[in-house]
Amino acid sequence: MIELEGLTKRFGTKTAVDRLSFTVRPGMVTGFLGPNGAGKSTTMRMMLDLDAPTSGTVRIDGRHYRELDEPLKYIGALLDAKALHGGRTAYHNLLCLAQSNRIPERRVGEVLDLVGLSAVARKKSKNFSMGMGQRLGIAAALLGDPRILMFDEPVNGLDPEGIHWIRNLMKHLATEGRTIFVSSHLMSEMALTADHLVVIGQGKLLADMSMADFIQRNSRSYVRLRTPQRELTRDVLASAGLTAVDAGDGALEIDGESTERIGELLAEHRVVLHELSAQRASLEEAFMQMTAGAVEYHAHDGAGPQWGADVKGA
């Protein structure tokens, strides 16, 4: 369990994190979302006591990070996969971490096995690819077999097999009753992994709710329907006070009604159905809707040159 209370961080006049309060609960994967510059990294660094908060507190299982005896046994973090000494081997990088928290040496071999790096354990980590570096960072987080795990962009550089693996790993760790806190920019990935979401924008808390709630509140849901009897269907729906909108591919879209009701309605009139499905927006759409306006680097549309004939003539 991680508890944040009124957490604030100012750099000069810029407020990176602004009175942030939320709790990350055990037993599920909590996703941490926000646009670039929203203060996600700063928040995670303050959780690990790497940055000192301007005000407010973070408690790890009720205690300050600095009061933890052997913190790796409470909380494992992957902040930056490259945050290890490149001139040291993968094995030794983990060994010195293990020793500082009195974790037995054999555990180092275990976590290297776990992330699939045993074969390169004795290689210097500066020659690792991004994906291998990421796996090494994950190994470091798992070293103390902690109850709380924090991952910042864990799938960066991993290949599909690795992405699949880390996703299942996180879910599994959560089902064991651990607290899993993951930040990522990949909405589609988050949608598959997280149960709960914490969303921040410009340092402020925007949402702290379950995935389903978040999507429902921040986007449109509708029923999609395909039938060979379009006109009849339209009439039936109209008589029930529902409007069917043409989706363009021959399907109809109906807002504000459940599939159950529509199914019953159409069955009464013996309409043949080729599809009747509830459509929910993706997490990405919901996220875009919520954070619009909290984005730092806006790109323009289009990539072609904005000049026209004048240059051609020149």
């Binding site: 690990l48 006591d49 600095r66 902040l79 945050a83 928290n101």
Partner: peptide, 8 residues
């Protein structure tokens, strides 16, 4: 950062 997370 890794070191200080291990020994705060």
């Amino acid at each position: 950062r890794t070191s200080l997370a291990a020994v705060p």
